[in-house]
Simulated assay, not measured.
Amino acid sequence: MSKEQKYTKGFVTSKDGTTIGYRQMGSGPGLILLHGGISSSQYFMKLGAALSDEFTVYIPDRRGRGLSGAFGDNYGLQREVEDLDAILKKTDAHYLFGGSSGGLIALQASITLSSIKKIVTYEPLVYVNKSEMDKFNEIVQRFEKQLAEGDVITAMITAMDVNSEVDPDQKSPLANHLPSIILKPIFSHVLASDEKNIKGDDVTLKDLMPTLKYDIQLVNETEGKLQKFKKVQSEILLLNGSKSPLFLKNSTEALNKVLPHTTHKELPGLNHDSAQNYGKPEIIAKEIKHFLE
């Protein structure tokens, strides 16, 4: 994170008593950014900075990460909606951006929370295709087993190649050309460098990896419930990247068919990680600004 990306911190208490912390920057109408899996508020700092000239930006650490409390009992979409509701009430924000599972939470919240006026989502994943989700869940189970056994590096390789196993056309260039004996020292260096350079309220990648199962739990919760998204009240901008896996595009297309107040746009050259610091957040910020105007 660059030094110029200054922020203050705020905290709310969710319905079940869990503390939810967030980073705040900028001025103007309130806009909440919800991160996805294996992520936290730190990964949306460049996106937040690009939006902070027009909005007061709030970037929560979703529960189980960073500034926020533990996942707690009975975790699921309802808990995430309650967390978001607490932030909405404190900040009086009416706009949301959600990436991946963060987008799913934003859509779910809009079914019951009328204070949300507009939502921009980037590749929200819902349960659409059983075959794809069976593969996805099998990979996550393997990933979790590797973490439990302390084999963090192998788990990283598994997570990196999840897209290609669900969608064979999306084979990672690294996984396609480099054997495990070379990949392992590369990822070992990545973890060591990440831990060495962590600062302030940031969370290490190693500590974020175990949170993946909770995000997949949210997706699995939508099995057979796609039609419920017809009740979403907000205006929606549904974004996806042209270089993202087919199963994510299938999710976007399925949502586009049921959401009642939706504009859909595919962004050329972008992939699933493009909203994050290491992607192309300035392109997504431009789309957010245009829609919220």
Rank of each mutant, 00 (worst) to 15 (best):
N176Q: 11
N250L: 07
N256L: 11
I105W: 00
I116R: 06
L67K: 02
L84R: 12
E282N: 11
L205I: 12
R79V: 13
N250D: 10
S100L: 02
E223P: 05
D161N: 14
N176E: 05
R65W: 02
D273Y: 07
V12F: 08
I216R: 03
Y58S: 02
F143M: 09
L96P: 00
M209N: 06
Q78W: 12
A70Q: 09
K206W: 14
G102E: 04
D201Y: 11
S68D: 04
S40W: 02
V162G: 06
D207H: 07
E132K: 07
V258M: 08
E138V: 05
A192V: 02
K199N: 12
F187W: 02
D83C: 07
F247W: 08
R23W: 12
E82M: 06
N256P: 03
L113S: 12
A109M: 02
L47W: 00
R79H: 14
S68A: 10
I139K: 10
I186N: 02
D73L: 10
R142E: 15
D201H: 10
E82S: 15
A109V: 01
L270K: 05
G150P: 04
P245N: 05
L248I: 02
G64D: 05
G279T: 03
D134G: 10
L88P: 09
K135E: 15
